[in-house]
Amino acid sequence: MPNNRVVNKTKTVTDVMEEQTTVAPEATPAEEVIVDTAPAEMRYDTVDIDLTQSSETMLYSEVIDMGTSPDNYVGKIIKVHGQYMFFHDEMSENSYPTVVVLDATKCCATGLVFELEGDAGYPQEDQEFTVTGALDYPSSEDCPFPILKNAVITTE
């Protein structure tokens, strides 16, 4: 585990996920936020698709494309920068930690659900951060979205 990781309270990923699927995101106090400041490259030697280098127009379009063309992205290591949102899906009645990206006009938003690796925590709502993970397409009804598995996050 990198030395510069700041941990205020240790939880497992399952604990955090279970807690966040039942508690509103606003209920998560700031002091409980666990911030992983380790560069993502320390965990992932190579990144297949680095969206932090893409223009806003391409970033938004590529994230949309990940949802519509799974064959082109499944298993790839994706690195993306955006805002944190604890997204509530009304269809499945579940909530998911999500990195939100905006289009160039700033009126449309899309995002990627992610699942953190290890005991890391989540950024605060609307906080900008970078997340890196392997893209997976779970077929379960619990999560009908593409998801970045074993994700690591970095915040500035």
Binding site: T57, M58, Y60, S61, I64, D65, T68, D103, A104, T105, C107, C108
Partner: peptide, 12 residues
């Protein structure tokens, strides 16, 4: 906004 200004719909 997407309908009025197109946004990035051409890329999706």
């Amino acid at each position: 906004c997407t309908t009025l200004f197109g946004s990035t719909s051409i890329l999706t």
